[in-house]
Nucleic acid binder design. Structure first.
Lengths: 225, 225
DNA sequence: GCGGCGAATCAAGAAATCATCAACACCGGC
DNA sequence: GCCGGTGTTGATGATTTCTTGATTCGCCGC
């Protein structure tokens, strides 16, 4: 349960999403314009903000920048379909995650949980622990059962991201966007290869998984062994 | 843990940061304006001050100068995003460190710990020891396994900074800002060269590291051998 | 059980990053 | 003005890391 704020100009969508999230047990507030939303967000300080792109009165990046000047509240951006490029630009502007419209409300809800989980876990000094796996942001070191891993940058980023989203299935496209930060570039097989390497270093294989579980047709998720 | 004082005019941020630090076990006091803050800091003499830039009633540098006239308390400046220039000006005005807004509270907490560590160790003779490496702030001397090193000023500053942040990966850009104190200036390769020299004097090389470990694509970190 | 398709792995070329050498610029003291 | 010591920039070679292609493997539905 969390306090969620939604900025969305379309009344219909706003109603739908708000109802859905309320049914899921969240406390929901909404605004129809960027300026209104910004004002209320600062005043109410909700736990997470869902921000629609393409608002009439202000660009998403502008709003984000203004918001970031005064608050570090997690922001999930809702972007028009498949416009990866702008979504990634937004991530760089300080958004925490994004969903592609039209999105299922449950999908959004999963993101909200993930973002909140992330926020809380990082309170523990920047180190994440799951099962015997430990990932440390500051030193960029990771270990399994106390044994340090020798990871390349991408491998570490990949592992970190999956660990932050532990238990949640992540698609390869999403990994390309969030870990690789390249809107158009790479094929999804790049992700496969890196996952393979990561598995090898984690002492597991796809056939004999321990942490990295393949979800056929969807993606991967990092789980407790 | 520590007594932290926060001067920040935005009520929202103030609340967020204060709560976060309190949760981390600190004793937190706050003020909303420079004049108020200054008065209280002098009266309470906390262990560390977190100072927001862009206060309405006084410029950050002015406040710092006034404060420094009466107190040696460590100061961490919070600056608007990427405004390296002003942050560095502040460092020269007597600030001890800075964070870029929006910052994660854990990040700030890490800085607080670092500043306090610095403060305490300098009380204890100002010497940092890691592995066989010893760095003395007061006399600006360093040694490895008891053998003194002949370091140039920049080399010493570099080593000192890395030692203070031992175990943490530091980017070259960060080193440029904090050790070189140049906002935009130098290229990152300057850092490479100095690192190379430092390594040579430490009796190691990039291929055969002992203290200075390269983290490809990110930066360097100083580790226990 | 068979065919189709996504996934995993291996291998090799491409790209990015880094380390080091060497030459040059700067600064203050003499 | 000259000089030693320092810091910066350029060039180059080496290393690490990333991407892509080809192939095999394994899951899933029929």
């Amino acid at each position: 349960m969390a306090r969620v704020f939604i900025i969305e100009d379309d009344a219909e969508i706003r109603r739908l999403v708000a109802n859905g999230l309320a049914r899921a047990g969240h406390d929901v507030e909404t605004a129809a314009s960027a300026l209104d939303g910004l004002r209320q967000v600062v005043a109410d300080s909700p736990d997470v903000l869902v921000l629609d792109l393409g608002l009439p009165d202000m660009g998403g990046d502008e709003l984000l920048r203004m918001l970031r000047a005064v608050s570090q509240i997690p922001v999930i951006v809702a972007t028009a379909q498949d416009d990866d490029a702008s979504a990634i630009a937004l991530l760089d502007s300080g958004a925490d995650d994004y969903v592609v419209k039209p999105y299922a409300v449950e999908h959004l809800e999963a993101r909200i949980r993930a973002v909140l989980r992330r926020g809380h876990s990082s309170d523990a000094g920047g180190r994440l622990e799951i099962g015997g796996l430990s990932v440390d942001r500051a030193s960029r070191e990771a270990s399994v059962d106390g044994v340090a891993l020798e990871l390349t940058p991408k491998e570490f980023d990949l592992l970190l991201f999956l660990t932050e989203r532990a238990g949640e299935v992540v698609t390869k496209r999403e990994l390309l966007a969030q870990v690789w930060r390249e809107p158009y570039g790479g094929s999804e097989r790049t992700v496969d290869v890196h996952l393979s390497w990561l598995r090898k270093k984690l002492g597991e294989s796809a056939a004999e998984p321990r942490y990295l579980r393949t979800v056929h047709g969807v993606g991967v998720k990092l789980v407790e062994p």
